[in-house]
Computed example of a mutant assay.
Amino acid sequence: MTQLQPRLGPRDLIVAAVMNLMWGLNIIAVKMAVTEVQPFTAAFLRQAIVLAVCIGWLRIVPGKMRALLGLGLLTGGLFFLVINLSLVVATNVSALAIAGQLGVPFSMLLAVLVLKERIRVYRIVGVALSLLGVGILVFDPAVQHELAGIALTALSSAIWAFSSLIQRSLKGVPVLTIYGWIGLVGTLVLAPAALVFEPQGFAALPHIPLKSFGWVAFSAIGSTLIGHGSMSWLLQRHPVASVTPLTLASPVLSVAFASWFFATPLTWIMILGGVIALTGVAIITIRSARAGESRA
């Protein structure tokens, strides 16, 4: 077994920077994809690309198939139905990037309720700050018309949180095998949804413009495979407590990139809510990583 190294070298930091860049830019790619293609059709195409790339690693994993199929249904199917709809109904994508951080406290709460994990005061404060930060957005007049998008983003975060519990049981399964099953199940779930609700968009897939295909491909390959593949590579070389804090740059980049690309304003209420929410996420992320290391 390879000895994990707490110290991160220059190559590790470059990989972490690429990972955060892919995740930070992904919100632009998804918003553009659901604008130029239709939301369910774009989600189907994304999962089809993931499946095409990972199909060589698709295999039966004894004792893990129930978890893999459940993860595929939630992460590959339902999550993208909801998150793509949230981006269709929203114009201020930066607000959704902030609301998307609810996945971290939701995961923590589910771990307590379902897995009976014990958390101490620091992570309780982190959960409270995360919820407070997103809640502040509701009082911003600039995002009052984004409440439907924020609500859908919160729902997608809950789905992501359930998925994270399932993923805990898949330790040791190669990441490309996991994403092969996510791609397969997601494709099977999303194809009927796109065919029923977006028949014209689905039928137009063979004629999709290269630029529109590029947005979807970036999301599938850049965010899903390169981003999560980089995370997996780092976790194979370094302790969780060293790697997990590296992910905290991605939500900041998402908010900044979305505001710049779509020219949407960052009001002082959004900045306040974002800082509070991200502080809570940072506390939960770092303390959870340390707790996991102490149990290892």
Rank of each mutant, 00 (worst) to 15 (best):
F262C: 05
G183Y: 05
L188W: 06
L58E: 08
F79P: 02
H145W: 00
I166K: 09
S164P: 01
I150F: 04
L170R: 13
G214Y: 02
R287Q: 12
A17H: 00
P265G: 03
I269L: 14
L81I: 15
V104K: 02
M22C: 14
G77H: 04
I178V: 15
A277P: 03
G77Y: 04
V61D: 12
G135H: 01
T285Y: 13
S156Y: 08
P245A: 08
V196N: 08
I119E: 02
R7H: 10
D12Y: 00
M19Q: 05
S242V: 08
S219W: 14
L85S: 14
G229P: 07
L69E: 03
T177D: 13
S294I: 02
L115A: 10
I271C: 04
L87Y: 14
I221Q: 07
A241V: 05
F257Y: 11
M22K: 02
A29W: 00
L78P: 01
M231T: 06
A241Y: 07
I276L: 03
L13F: 01
L137T: 02
V121I: 13
L87E: 15
G229V: 01
E36V: 09
Q47Y: 14
I284T: 06
S164Y: 07
L113R: 01
A142Q: 13
M19A: 03
Q47L: 15
T41L: 10
G9V: 01
A289P: 01
W160H: 07
S163N: 13
L205C: 09
V50S: 11
L253F: 12
A48M: 13
A67F: 15
G227S: 05
S232K: 09
G24S: 04
V89I: 12
M1R: 14
Q5F: 10
W57H: 11
F79K: 01
W181T: 04
E293S: 09
F197M: 13
P192E: 12
S86M: 07
R118H: 09
P141G: 04
S223P: 00
I98Q: 02
I284L: 07
V37H: 11
L81N: 06
V53W: 03
A52E: 10
L188M: 11
F257G: 01
V104Q: 07
L225S: 06
I98L: 01
F218W: 04
R287M: 08
I178R: 12
R7W: 00
V127R: 00
F218I: 04
V255W: 00
P265H: 09
A16Y: 05
R120P: 03
T91N: 14
L205I: 14
A33D: 10
A191M: 11
R120C: 05
V240P: 06
A43R: 01
